[in-house]
Write a protein that binds this DNA or RNA. Structure first.
Lengths: 232, 232
DNA sequence: CGGAGAATTGACAAGCATCAATCGAGGTGG
DNA sequence: CCACCTCGATTGATGCTTGTCAATTCTCCG
Protein backbone atom coordinates (compact mmCIF):
# COMPACT_ATOMS: atom_id res chain seq x y z
CA UNK A 1 0.00 0.00 0.00
CA UNK A 2 1.29 3.40 -0.88
CA UNK A 3 1.99 5.94 1.79
CA UNK A 4 -0.37 8.82 1.55
CA UNK A 5 -0.43 12.26 3.00
CA UNK A 6 -1.33 12.13 6.67
CA UNK A 7 -4.34 14.16 7.44
CA UNK A 8 -5.10 15.15 3.90
CA UNK A 9 -8.51 16.62 3.50
CA UNK A 10 -9.51 14.94 0.27
CA UNK A 11 -10.46 11.49 -0.99
CA UNK A 12 -11.92 9.99 2.11
CA UNK A 13 -14.98 8.62 0.38
CA UNK A 14 -13.49 5.34 -0.70
CA UNK A 15 -12.36 4.38 2.78
CA UNK A 16 -15.38 5.17 4.91
CA UNK A 17 -17.62 2.14 4.53
CA UNK A 18 -19.65 2.82 7.64
CA UNK A 19 -20.17 6.45 7.21
CA UNK A 20 -21.05 7.42 3.70
CA UNK A 21 -24.27 9.00 4.86
CA UNK A 22 -22.64 10.99 7.62
CA UNK A 23 -19.86 12.24 5.40
CA UNK A 24 -19.59 15.90 4.65
CA UNK A 25 -16.88 17.57 2.68
CA UNK A 26 -13.96 19.00 4.58
CA UNK A 27 -14.80 22.32 3.07
CA UNK A 28 -18.15 22.31 4.84
CA UNK A 29 -16.66 20.96 8.05
CA UNK A 30 -14.25 23.85 8.12
CA UNK A 31 -16.89 26.36 7.22
CA UNK A 32 -18.20 25.69 10.67
CA UNK A 33 -14.83 26.65 12.06
CA UNK A 34 -14.37 29.58 9.75
CA UNK A 35 -15.73 32.20 12.06
CA UNK A 36 -13.27 31.16 14.75
CA UNK A 37 -10.18 30.84 12.60
CA UNK A 38 -7.46 33.44 12.29
CA UNK A 39 -4.88 33.45 9.55
CA UNK A 40 -1.22 33.66 10.36
CA UNK A 41 2.09 33.24 8.60
CA UNK A 42 5.39 32.00 9.93
CA UNK A 43 8.80 32.28 8.33
CA UNK A 44 11.14 29.43 7.57
CA UNK A 45 12.70 28.00 10.72
CA UNK A 46 10.21 29.69 13.00
CA UNK A 47 8.45 27.74 15.71
CA UNK A 48 4.65 27.48 15.73
CA UNK A 49 4.53 25.87 19.15
CA UNK A 50 6.86 23.93 21.42
CA UNK A 51 6.64 20.53 23.03
CA UNK A 52 5.15 20.92 26.48
CA UNK A 53 3.20 24.07 25.65
CA UNK A 54 -0.43 24.07 26.68
CA UNK A 55 -2.39 23.05 23.61
CA UNK A 56 -4.36 26.24 23.17
CA UNK A 57 -4.92 25.96 19.45
CA UNK A 58 -5.44 23.69 16.51
CA UNK A 59 -3.98 24.62 13.15
CA UNK A 60 -4.67 23.93 9.52
CA UNK A 61 -1.69 24.25 7.22
CA UNK A 62 -2.70 26.22 4.15
CA UNK A 63 0.63 26.60 2.43
CA UNK A 64 4.22 25.54 3.07
CA UNK A 65 5.70 22.65 5.01
CA UNK A 66 6.07 21.94 8.70
CA UNK A 67 8.17 19.47 10.67
CA UNK A 68 7.08 17.89 13.93
CA UNK A 69 10.15 17.45 16.11
CA UNK A 70 11.09 16.10 19.49
CA UNK A 71 14.15 17.75 20.94
CA UNK A 72 16.70 16.15 23.26
CA UNK A 73 18.68 18.00 25.90
CA UNK A 74 21.95 17.44 24.05
CA UNK A 75 20.54 19.21 21.00
CA UNK A 76 19.83 16.10 18.94
CA UNK A 77 16.41 16.12 17.35
CA UNK A 78 13.96 13.62 16.01
CA UNK A 79 11.73 14.69 13.15
CA UNK A 80 8.51 12.76 13.75
CA UNK A 81 6.64 13.87 10.66
CA UNK A 82 6.48 16.39 7.84
CA UNK A 83 3.19 18.15 7.15
CA UNK A 84 2.07 19.74 3.93
CA UNK A 85 -0.77 21.97 2.77
CA UNK A 86 -4.19 20.91 4.06
CA UNK A 87 -2.78 18.86 6.91
CA UNK A 88 -4.08 19.37 10.43
CA UNK A 89 -1.97 20.13 13.46
CA UNK A 90 -2.68 19.92 17.15
CA UNK A 91 -6.32 18.91 16.89
CA UNK A 92 -5.96 15.58 18.66
CA UNK A 93 -4.44 16.69 21.95
CA UNK A 94 -6.22 18.71 24.58
CA UNK A 95 -3.63 19.12 27.29
CA UNK A 96 -0.04 19.62 26.12
CA UNK A 97 1.63 19.40 22.74
CA UNK A 98 3.90 16.38 22.74
CA UNK A 99 6.12 17.67 19.92
CA UNK A 100 7.27 21.01 18.62
CA UNK A 101 6.11 22.32 15.26
CA UNK A 102 8.57 24.29 13.13
CA UNK A 103 8.20 25.82 9.70
CA UNK A 104 10.34 24.05 7.11
CA UNK A 105 9.49 26.77 4.64
CA UNK A 106 7.48 29.97 4.89
CA UNK A 107 4.01 28.89 5.91
CA UNK A 108 0.45 30.14 5.94
CA UNK A 109 -1.84 28.65 8.56
CA UNK A 110 -5.27 29.06 10.01
CA UNK A 111 -5.42 28.91 13.75
CA UNK A 112 -8.47 27.76 15.68
CA UNK A 113 -8.99 28.24 19.38
CA UNK A 114 -9.12 25.15 21.53
CA UNK A 115 -12.61 26.14 22.63
CA UNK A 116 -13.86 26.25 19.06
CA UNK A 117 -12.19 22.94 18.32
CA UNK A 118 -13.69 21.29 21.39
CA UNK A 119 -17.11 22.57 20.58
CA UNK A 120 -16.97 21.38 17.02
CA UNK A 121 -15.55 18.02 18.05
CA UNK A 122 -18.52 17.37 20.30
CA UNK A 123 -21.19 18.89 18.09
CA UNK A 124 -20.23 18.06 14.54
CA UNK A 125 -20.07 14.33 13.98
CA UNK A 126 -18.41 14.59 10.58
CA UNK A 127 -15.69 16.84 11.88
CA UNK A 128 -15.09 14.56 14.84
CA UNK A 129 -14.87 11.64 12.47
CA UNK A 130 -12.41 13.49 10.32
CA UNK A 131 -10.13 14.24 13.25
CA UNK A 132 -10.33 10.60 14.35
CA UNK A 133 -9.44 9.50 10.88
CA UNK A 134 -6.53 11.89 10.59
CA UNK A 135 -5.13 10.87 13.96
CA UNK A 136 -5.45 7.20 13.12
CA UNK A 137 -3.63 7.86 9.87
CA UNK A 138 -0.87 9.52 11.84
CA UNK A 139 -0.55 6.48 14.06
CA UNK A 140 -0.53 4.23 11.03
CA UNK A 141 2.29 6.23 9.46
CA UNK A 142 4.23 6.19 12.71
CA UNK A 143 4.01 2.39 12.94
CA UNK A 144 4.99 2.10 9.30
CA UNK A 145 8.05 4.17 9.94
CA UNK A 146 9.02 2.04 12.93
CA UNK A 147 9.39 -0.82 10.46
CA UNK A 148 11.55 1.43 8.34
CA UNK A 149 13.73 2.52 11.26
CA UNK A 150 14.21 -0.98 12.63
CA UNK A 151 14.52 -3.16 9.58
CA UNK A 152 15.60 -1.10 6.59
CA UNK A 153 19.03 -0.14 5.30
CA UNK A 154 20.14 3.39 4.50
CA UNK A 155 19.44 2.88 0.80
CA UNK A 156 16.01 1.46 1.45
CA UNK A 157 15.17 4.41 3.66
CA UNK A 158 16.20 7.04 1.14
CA UNK A 159 14.41 5.25 -1.68
CA UNK A 160 11.31 5.06 0.49
CA UNK A 161 11.65 8.73 1.36
CA UNK A 162 11.98 9.91 -2.22
CA UNK A 163 9.06 7.81 -3.40
CA UNK A 164 6.90 8.88 -0.50
CA UNK A 165 7.67 12.55 -1.03
CA UNK A 166 6.93 12.13 -4.72
CA UNK A 167 3.58 10.52 -3.98
CA UNK A 168 2.64 13.10 -1.40
CA UNK A 169 3.40 15.95 -3.75
CA UNK A 170 1.60 14.33 -6.65
CA UNK A 171 4.78 14.74 -8.70
CA UNK A 172 2.98 16.34 -11.63
CA UNK A 173 6.04 18.40 -12.41
CA UNK A 174 8.41 15.51 -12.75
CA UNK A 175 10.50 16.98 -9.98
CA UNK A 176 10.33 16.33 -6.28
CA UNK A 177 10.61 19.47 -4.27
CA UNK A 178 12.32 18.88 -0.94
CA UNK A 179 11.81 21.98 1.18
CA UNK A 180 13.65 20.42 4.12
CA UNK A 181 17.40 20.30 4.67
CA UNK A 182 19.56 17.18 4.59
CA UNK A 183 19.68 17.45 8.37
CA UNK A 184 15.89 17.26 8.51
CA UNK A 185 15.86 14.23 6.24
CA UNK A 186 18.53 12.56 8.33
CA UNK A 187 16.63 13.21 11.55
CA UNK A 188 13.45 11.95 9.94
CA UNK A 189 14.97 8.69 8.74
CA UNK A 190 17.21 8.08 11.73
CA UNK A 191 20.60 8.38 10.08
CA UNK A 192 23.54 10.77 9.74
CA UNK A 193 23.46 13.56 7.19
CA UNK A 194 26.64 12.19 5.66
CA UNK A 195 24.89 8.92 4.99
CA UNK A 196 22.00 10.76 3.35
CA UNK A 197 24.48 12.52 1.11
CA UNK A 198 26.30 9.34 0.22
CA UNK A 199 23.18 7.39 -0.66
CA UNK A 200 21.83 10.24 -2.77
CA UNK A 201 25.21 10.26 -4.48
CA UNK A 202 24.87 6.56 -5.24
CA UNK A 203 21.41 7.08 -6.70
CA UNK A 204 22.74 9.88 -8.87
CA UNK A 205 25.52 7.65 -10.13
CA UNK A 206 23.08 4.81 -10.75
CA UNK A 207 21.08 7.17 -12.87
CA UNK A 208 18.01 6.63 -10.71
CA UNK A 209 17.72 10.33 -9.94
CA UNK A 210 19.00 13.63 -11.24
CA UNK A 211 19.66 16.45 -8.84
CA UNK A 212 18.58 19.67 -10.51
CA UNK A 213 19.33 21.77 -7.49
CA UNK A 214 19.83 21.04 -3.80
CA UNK A 215 16.14 20.59 -3.19
CA UNK A 216 14.87 19.71 -6.61
CA UNK A 217 15.27 16.06 -7.52
CA UNK A 218 14.02 14.34 -10.63
CA UNK A 219 13.15 10.67 -10.46
CA UNK A 220 14.50 9.23 -13.68
CA UNK A 221 14.13 5.54 -12.91
CA UNK A 222 11.21 4.99 -10.58
CA UNK A 223 11.37 1.22 -10.97
CA UNK A 224 14.93 1.20 -9.71
CA UNK A 225 13.95 3.16 -6.62
CA UNK A 226 11.00 0.87 -5.95
CA UNK A 227 13.30 -2.11 -6.30
CA UNK A 228 15.66 -0.67 -3.72
CA UNK A 229 12.85 0.31 -1.40
CA UNK A 230 11.38 -3.17 -1.34
CA UNK A 231 8.02 -3.84 0.23
CA UNK A 232 6.25 -1.06 2.00
CA UNK B 1 7.59 12.64 31.85
CA UNK B 2 7.07 9.03 32.69
CA UNK B 3 5.73 6.65 30.12
CA UNK B 4 2.33 5.43 31.05
CA UNK B 5 0.07 2.72 29.84
CA UNK B 6 -1.38 3.67 26.47
CA UNK B 7 -5.12 3.76 26.62
CA UNK B 8 -5.42 2.99 30.24
CA UNK B 9 -8.87 3.62 31.56
CA UNK B 10 -7.95 5.23 34.84
CA UNK B 11 -6.45 8.48 36.05
CA UNK B 12 -7.47 10.78 33.28
CA UNK B 13 -8.74 13.47 35.57
CA UNK B 14 -5.47 15.23 36.08
CA UNK B 15 -4.80 15.66 32.38
CA UNK B 16 -8.15 16.89 31.10
CA UNK B 17 -8.19 20.59 31.85
CA UNK B 18 -10.86 21.40 29.29
CA UNK B 19 -13.21 18.65 30.08
CA UNK B 20 -13.64 18.06 33.74
CA UNK B 21 -17.35 18.68 33.50
CA UNK B 22 -17.86 16.39 30.54
CA UNK B 23 -15.82 13.61 32.08
CA UNK B 24 -17.53 10.40 33.03
CA UNK B 25 -15.87 7.34 34.40
CA UNK B 26 -14.77 4.71 31.96
CA UNK B 27 -16.90 2.27 33.85
CA UNK B 28 -19.99 4.25 32.93
CA UNK B 29 -18.81 4.80 29.38
CA UNK B 30 -18.45 1.07 28.94
CA UNK B 31 -21.72 0.35 30.63
CA UNK B 32 -23.21 1.87 27.53
CA UNK B 33 -21.37 -0.69 25.47
CA UNK B 34 -22.07 -3.55 27.80
CA UNK B 35 -25.13 -4.83 26.05
CA UNK B 36 -23.22 -5.09 22.80
CA UNK B 37 -20.05 -6.68 24.09
CA UNK B 38 -19.21 -10.36 23.96
CA UNK B 39 -16.51 -11.97 26.02
CA UNK B 40 -13.86 -14.09 24.39
CA UNK B 41 -10.56 -15.67 25.31
CA UNK B 42 -7.51 -16.34 23.17
CA UNK B 43 -4.57 -18.54 23.95
CA UNK B 44 -0.95 -17.49 23.96
CA UNK B 45 0.37 -16.94 20.44
CA UNK B 46 -3.08 -16.81 18.91
CA UNK B 47 -4.06 -14.02 16.55
CA UNK B 48 -6.98 -11.74 17.40
CA UNK B 49 -6.99 -10.09 13.99
CA UNK B 50 -4.58 -9.58 11.13
CA UNK B 51 -3.26 -6.49 9.37
CA UNK B 52 -5.47 -5.77 6.40
CA UNK B 53 -8.57 -7.39 7.88
CA UNK B 54 -11.74 -5.36 7.72
CA UNK B 55 -12.06 -3.65 11.09
CA UNK B 56 -15.29 -5.27 12.18
CA UNK B 57 -14.73 -4.98 15.91
CA UNK B 58 -13.24 -3.01 18.72
CA UNK B 59 -11.80 -4.83 21.71
CA UNK B 60 -11.15 -4.13 25.32
CA UNK B 61 -8.39 -6.19 26.89
CA UNK B 62 -9.57 -7.50 30.25
CA UNK B 63 -6.69 -9.76 31.17
CA UNK B 64 -3.36 -10.77 29.66
CA UNK B 65 -1.04 -9.02 27.22
CA UNK B 66 -1.21 -8.39 23.50
CA UNK B 67 1.37 -7.32 20.97
CA UNK B 68 0.61 -5.18 17.92
CA UNK B 69 2.82 -6.34 15.08
CA UNK B 70 3.54 -5.48 11.49
CA UNK B 71 4.79 -8.44 9.49
CA UNK B 72 7.19 -8.32 6.54
CA UNK B 73 7.17 -10.76 3.67
CA UNK B 74 10.54 -12.21 4.68
CA UNK B 75 9.14 -13.11 8.08
CA UNK B 76 10.71 -10.29 10.02
CA UNK B 77 8.33 -8.55 12.36
CA UNK B 78 8.02 -5.22 14.05
CA UNK B 79 6.28 -5.10 17.41
CA UNK B 80 4.61 -1.69 17.42
CA UNK B 81 3.20 -1.82 20.93
CA UNK B 82 2.34 -4.02 23.86
CA UNK B 83 -1.10 -3.75 25.41
CA UNK B 84 -2.14 -4.70 28.91
CA UNK B 85 -5.37 -5.11 30.84
CA UNK B 86 -7.85 -2.24 30.31
CA UNK B 87 -6.24 -1.11 27.07
CA UNK B 88 -8.38 -0.59 23.99
CA UNK B 89 -7.79 -2.16 20.63
CA UNK B 90 -9.10 -1.34 17.18
CA UNK B 91 -11.42 1.48 18.22
CA UNK B 92 -9.73 4.17 16.20
CA UNK B 93 -9.88 2.66 12.72
CA UNK B 94 -13.02 2.13 10.73
CA UNK B 95 -11.76 0.56 7.53
CA UNK B 96 -8.86 -1.87 7.86
CA UNK B 97 -6.63 -2.85 10.76
CA UNK B 98 -3.15 -1.55 10.02
CA UNK B 99 -1.43 -4.05 12.31
CA UNK B 100 -2.01 -7.56 13.54
CA UNK B 101 -2.88 -8.26 17.15
CA UNK B 102 -1.48 -11.39 18.80
CA UNK B 103 -1.84 -12.72 22.32
CA UNK B 104 1.45 -12.57 24.22
CA UNK B 105 -0.17 -14.57 27.01
CA UNK B 106 -3.58 -16.13 27.44
CA UNK B 107 -6.02 -13.26 27.17
CA UNK B 108 -9.56 -12.37 28.04
CA UNK B 109 -11.20 -9.69 25.93
CA UNK B 110 -14.52 -8.06 25.35
CA UNK B 111 -15.43 -7.59 21.74
CA UNK B 112 -17.72 -4.81 20.51
CA UNK B 113 -19.26 -4.67 17.08
CA UNK B 114 -18.18 -1.87 14.81
CA UNK B 115 -21.79 -0.72 14.63
CA UNK B 116 -22.01 -0.38 18.40
CA UNK B 117 -18.70 1.43 18.50
CA UNK B 118 -19.72 3.84 15.76
CA UNK B 119 -22.98 4.57 17.44
CA UNK B 120 -21.39 5.25 20.77
CA UNK B 121 -18.66 7.36 19.19
CA UNK B 122 -21.21 9.67 17.67
CA UNK B 123 -23.67 9.69 20.54
CA UNK B 124 -21.62 9.62 23.70
CA UNK B 125 -19.33 12.61 23.95
CA UNK B 126 -17.34 11.27 26.86
CA UNK B 127 -16.68 7.98 25.13
CA UNK B 128 -15.64 9.77 21.94
CA UNK B 129 -13.31 11.92 23.97
CA UNK B 130 -11.84 8.89 25.64
CA UNK B 131 -11.10 7.22 22.31
CA UNK B 132 -9.53 10.44 21.03
CA UNK B 133 -7.40 10.63 24.12
CA UNK B 134 -6.30 7.03 23.88
CA UNK B 135 -5.40 7.35 20.22
CA UNK B 136 -3.46 10.53 20.84
CA UNK B 137 -1.61 8.76 23.64
CA UNK B 138 -0.75 5.99 21.20
CA UNK B 139 0.67 8.52 18.76
CA UNK B 140 2.60 10.18 21.54
CA UNK B 141 4.14 6.86 22.56
CA UNK B 142 4.98 6.07 18.95
CA UNK B 143 6.83 9.38 18.53
CA UNK B 144 8.60 8.85 21.80
CA UNK B 145 9.80 5.48 20.63
CA UNK B 146 11.08 6.93 17.38
CA UNK B 147 13.49 8.96 19.47
CA UNK B 148 14.49 5.75 21.20
CA UNK B 149 14.99 3.85 17.96
CA UNK B 150 16.96 6.61 16.27
CA UNK B 151 19.11 8.06 19.01
CA UNK B 152 19.52 5.54 21.81
CA UNK B 153 22.06 2.77 22.36
CA UNK B 154 21.20 -0.83 23.14
CA UNK B 155 21.75 -0.28 26.86
CA UNK B 156 19.61 2.84 26.91
CA UNK B 157 16.82 0.98 25.14
CA UNK B 158 16.81 -1.96 27.53
CA UNK B 159 16.97 0.33 30.55
CA UNK B 160 14.06 2.32 29.13
CA UNK B 161 12.15 -0.87 28.47
CA UNK B 162 12.57 -2.26 31.95
CA UNK B 163 11.64 0.99 33.62
CA UNK B 164 8.64 1.48 31.35
CA UNK B 165 7.39 -2.04 31.96
CA UNK B 166 7.86 -1.54 35.68
CA UNK B 167 5.87 1.69 35.61
CA UNK B 168 3.11 0.22 33.49
CA UNK B 169 2.71 -2.73 35.80
CA UNK B 170 2.79 -0.58 38.92
CA UNK B 171 5.58 -2.82 40.24
CA UNK B 172 3.90 -3.36 43.58
CA UNK B 173 5.41 -6.83 43.77
CA UNK B 174 8.99 -5.69 43.36
CA UNK B 175 9.25 -7.89 40.32
CA UNK B 176 8.64 -7.00 36.71
CA UNK B 177 6.71 -9.66 34.91
CA UNK B 178 7.67 -9.87 31.24
CA UNK B 179 5.10 -12.06 29.51
CA UNK B 180 6.77 -11.57 26.13
CA UNK B 181 9.75 -13.48 24.75
CA UNK B 182 13.19 -12.02 24.12
CA UNK B 183 12.30 -12.06 20.44
CA UNK B 184 9.31 -9.83 21.14
CA UNK B 185 11.45 -7.44 23.14
CA UNK B 186 14.04 -7.35 20.38
CA UNK B 187 11.42 -6.65 17.73
CA UNK B 188 9.92 -3.96 19.94
CA UNK B 189 13.21 -2.16 20.53
CA UNK B 190 14.66 -2.65 17.08
CA UNK B 191 17.61 -4.86 17.94
CA UNK B 192 18.76 -8.49 17.78
CA UNK B 193 17.72 -10.95 20.46
CA UNK B 194 21.38 -11.66 21.16
CA UNK B 195 21.90 -8.01 22.00
CA UNK B 196 18.92 -8.08 24.36
CA UNK B 197 20.45 -11.07 26.12
CA UNK B 198 23.86 -9.47 26.34
CA UNK B 199 22.61 -6.20 27.77
CA UNK B 200 20.43 -7.97 30.30
CA UNK B 201 23.53 -9.95 31.21
CA UNK B 202 25.46 -6.73 31.79
CA UNK B 203 22.71 -5.35 34.01
CA UNK B 204 22.74 -8.56 36.00
CA UNK B 205 26.50 -8.32 36.46
CA UNK B 206 26.22 -4.65 37.42
CA UNK B 207 23.78 -5.67 40.08
CA UNK B 208 21.13 -3.41 38.65
CA UNK B 209 18.71 -6.28 38.20
CA UNK B 210 18.22 -9.83 39.41
CA UNK B 211 16.67 -12.38 37.12
CA UNK B 212 14.42 -14.59 39.21
CA UNK B 213 13.20 -16.56 36.22
CA UNK B 214 13.17 -15.98 32.49
CA UNK B 215 10.31 -13.55 32.69
CA UNK B 216 10.56 -12.33 36.25
CA UNK B 217 13.06 -9.56 36.79
CA UNK B 218 13.69 -7.63 39.97
CA UNK B 219 14.94 -4.08 39.75
CA UNK B 220 17.54 -3.83 42.49
CA UNK B 221 19.09 -0.50 41.56
CA UNK B 222 16.53 1.71 39.90
CA UNK B 223 18.80 4.74 39.98
CA UNK B 224 21.40 2.89 37.95
CA UNK B 225 18.84 2.01 35.31
CA UNK B 226 17.57 5.57 35.17
CA UNK B 227 21.13 6.77 34.79
CA UNK B 228 21.68 4.45 31.85
CA UNK B 229 18.34 5.32 30.28
CA UNK B 230 19.05 9.03 30.33
CA UNK B 231 16.36 11.54 29.52
CA UNK B 232 13.00 10.32 28.36
C1' DC C 1 31.70 39.25 -5.68
C1' DG C 2 32.18 37.47 -1.19
C1' DG C 3 30.81 35.27 2.97
C1' DA C 4 28.35 31.90 5.70
C1' DG C 5 25.93 27.97 6.15
C1' DA C 6 24.91 23.64 4.06
C1' DA C 7 26.38 19.68 1.52
C1' DT C 8 29.75 16.58 -0.06
C1' DT C 9 33.64 13.51 0.20
C1' DG C 10 37.13 10.77 2.63
C1' DA C 11 39.27 8.05 6.47
C1' DC C 12 38.54 5.57 10.42
C1' DA C 13 36.38 3.35 14.34
C1' DA C 14 32.71 1.30 16.87
C1' DG C 15 28.54 -0.66 17.98
C1' DC C 16 25.76 -4.02 16.78
C1' DA C 17 24.06 -7.78 13.57
C1' DT C 18 25.05 -12.16 12.05
C1' DC C 19 26.52 -16.84 12.32
C1' DA C 20 27.32 -20.74 15.23
C1' DA C 21 27.30 -23.59 19.23
C1' DT C 22 25.91 -24.51 23.90
C1' DC C 23 23.01 -24.07 27.67
C1' DG C 24 18.72 -23.95 30.12
C1' DA C 25 13.86 -24.30 31.03
C1' DG C 26 9.36 -25.82 30.59
C1' DG C 27 6.20 -29.30 29.18
C1' DT C 28 4.94 -34.08 28.00
C1' DG C 29 4.66 -38.88 28.27
C1' DG C 30 6.06 -43.02 30.19
C1' DC D 1 7.99 -38.47 39.63
C1' DC D 2 11.57 -38.45 36.50
C1' DA D 3 13.72 -38.47 32.02
C1' DC D 4 13.55 -36.69 27.71
C1' DC D 5 12.70 -33.50 24.12
C1' DT D 6 12.04 -29.18 22.03
C1' DC D 7 12.14 -24.37 21.84
C1' DG D 8 14.01 -20.32 23.65
C1' DA D 9 17.94 -18.03 25.81
C1' DT D 10 22.71 -17.37 26.39
C1' DT D 11 27.49 -16.85 25.11
C1' DG D 12 31.30 -16.37 21.81
C1' DA D 13 33.74 -14.92 17.43
C1' DT D 14 33.67 -12.18 13.44
C1' DG D 15 32.39 -8.82 9.93
C1' DC D 16 29.89 -4.99 8.16
C1' DT D 17 27.06 -1.15 7.96
C1' DT D 18 26.91 3.20 9.48
C1' DG D 19 28.26 6.99 12.74
C1' DT D 20 31.87 10.15 13.74
C1' DC D 21 35.53 13.32 12.84
C1' DA D 22 37.75 16.26 9.55
C1' DA D 23 38.51 18.85 5.40
C1' DT D 24 36.84 20.61 1.19
C1' DT D 25 33.43 22.16 -1.97
C1' DC D 26 29.17 24.02 -3.21
C1' DT D 27 25.12 27.01 -3.05
C1' DC D 28 22.43 30.48 -1.88
C1' DC D 29 21.93 35.48 -0.76
C1' DG D 30 23.16 39.82 0.43
Amino acid sequence: MLQTVPGTLANDHDTMPWTKDAYVSTARAFDLLAGHGTRLTVKRGQEIFAEGDTAESGYRLVDGSIRLVKLMVDGRRQVCEFLNADDLLGFETDDEYYFSAEAVSDCALVRYSRRAVETLLTEDKAFARHVRKVTARGLQDAYQRMVLLCHKSAQERIAWFLLTMADRAGIETGYIHLPMTRTDIANYLGMAIETVSRVLGQFKQNGAIIQKSLNRIQVVDRDALELVRGEV
